[in-house]
Design a protein around this nucleic acid. Sequence first.
RNA 1: GGCCCAUUGGUCAAGCGGUCAAGACACCGCCCUUUCACGGCGGUAACCCGGGUUCGAUUCCCGGAUGGGUCACCA
Length: 492
Amino acid sequence: MSVRTRFAPSPTGFVHIGSLRTALYNYLFAKKHQGQYILRIEDTDQNRYVEGAVEGMIHALSWAGVCHDEGAVIEESKLVQKGDYGPYIQSERLDIYKKHIQQLLESGHAYHCFCSKDRIDAVREEQKAKGMLPKYDGHCRGISVEEAIKRIEAGEPYVIRLKLPHNRDIHFQDVVRGHVAVNTEDMDDQVLMKSDGFPTYHFAVVVDDHLMGITHVIRGEEWLPSTPKHVFTYEAFGWKAPEFVHLPNILNADKKKLSKRQGDVAVEDFIRKGYLPEGLVNYIALVGWSPEENQEIFSMEELIAQFSLDRVSKSGGVFDTDKLNYINAHYIKESSDERITDLAIPHLIAAGYITDLEAKERYQWLVDMVRVLKGYLSYVGEITQKVDMFFKKEIEPEDQEAAELLKLEHVPQLAELFEQKVIEAEIIDEEFGKRVFKEIQKETGIKGQNLFRPVRVLLTGSAHGPDMPLIIKVLGKQNILSRIEYVKEHLL
RNA sequence: GGCCCAUUGGUCAAGCGGUCAAGACACCGCCCUUUCACGGCGGUAACCCGGGUUCGAUUCCCGGAUGGGUCACCA
């Protein structure tokens, strides 16, 4: 039987970085085994409906290159469903759940519960006060189907609960944790169908995973404690349970579950900042999984080829932005100048450096600038912090070091001579930069750091930065001349 | 608190009874470079604590400690 995996998010608005990894592992495992990877939307909580969330999530996932074979997809900007096991949106499967809950009711594995919220709360309070595990007390367990029907017809609200046997150990094998057993006394008669007619997660996952032929349930470790309920439900249906694979959490620097308070957790945040999909995916693949060989940089194809569930870690890993940056910087360096330029333009516009129109008119110039800066970026959005030297009109020494360089006694002479060379130049390209330094050196005897560094400050205000000839080329004649004029007038 | 899970350098992690305990990020130093990055080379730095089992435990077992997860008509 071919492998079928699924990523089943609840459409609450964005894709958490941990969810991306879950989706990725599902995808990698399926592809590795020539199987299918499915996207199912778990929208059984009507109170949590968020407009456009599904579209947003699909967008983020496809940005990352984690593409599903079946499920909700966007075609011609419309949300449609693809595959033979649909619908893939749980709110469209209500009749399926109704049919299946009936089966459990008939087999005695589930029962109607008419307890009010108040009663249940009171029971739980009392249990807590006594130091007991708060759980449903089984008040309605004994209600017969006939009585239940009567009460339902009378309009009483109800839920349907799973009827757990007493004191029984539920066993299952988790692919990453191994054997796990939980006693039913430590479990609750979980609500399967809510009073609004929607299934709970615990019921819908089991029904859907079975009906959709899912062979491997790969999900976050927060589901580990509720897996016994699912296992029991499979059993109640007489179904074969899939393999369970519970992934360790991704943590904050303080080792707590990655949360919004402490920085970026949504893949949308990383897209916005200008991370490349290859970078994020490559990094995230490495938190919770390690390859056999000492490899760090992986394309999606390589990940697919090398991925294996038995190399998934058992314990949570801290999300390390430094390492993400390192990997992302690698991909930025490998990318074409045009690609990075295209990504950089919105940032440059937002920062007010260029307008929409200029982005088009001066595109080639922007590409040249990006070529100079590319090697300095961890993520594309960072470019707005590095680009000032190409846009500013007034050169002021950036720091003490730059100011000192400008005070050297040969600087006026240097400025004069450099300006002259630029005025005479036909074209200002990289070669010009290289040549002019040689000429000045020959004519004046000024050389090495004494030559390059003051010129750098003269032109950029900074004592450090990218290769001078490159900067000279990007700056161009007019810029260089006006900058030297400014410095001569104000600073020398 | 009950239950479940985990524990190798600051971080990600390899290791699967005998190793000088890999590698990467970060950090430090050197080289390259007019400078800063990049790159290259090198360095600092770890098996949570007790008991067992064994000729021998980071590796296996049991306790403890610590951390995390979970205890909803949310997923």
